[in-house]
Amino acid sequence: MIEEPEQLVRRAQGGDTLAMNDLLDQLTPYVGRICGPIALSNGPDATQEALVAVFRSLRTLKEPGALFGWVRAIAVREAIRVARQDQRQVPADLDELPAPNDPQLLVDVRDTLARLTPEHRALLVLRDIEGLDEQAAAVLLELPAGTAKSRLHRARASFRKAWGS
């Protein structure tokens, strides 16, 4: 029987390392889904760094029910940090983003993402994978709400143009 994450957090905080093991099993795919699109080829490094940060500070999580939101914030932060460190990835100067469910994104998401900055990729992940609205994504990324919104809004035309060229 798979134990609820909240229970696992409580047991882990109480010193049970098997609960930590089981929590790792549950969190790894989730963190990989966030870190993969943001850190791209550095996804495994970012996922490892995020989970290291999660387990190092698990004792400080006061509300186990908030686990996934807390982990999400750590994963996004670590993925952006790791992606920025990689000098090989030089995204194009493209401050535009595709719309959610844009069929063009289905063609090749990885190519599309590689043209964006890590911060833009994080916005996409938060909006399209995590289902956050622009305001919540802006808060998590510590961006002014207007900045996030305008970036998302202005994005589509030039992004499509890039695809069309």
Partner: peptide, 10 residues
């Protein structure tokens, strides 16, 4: 969308 790249952890 279903083809987002996912990071695996060994």
């Amino acid at each position: 969308m279903t083809n987002w790249p996912q990071a695996e952890l060994d």
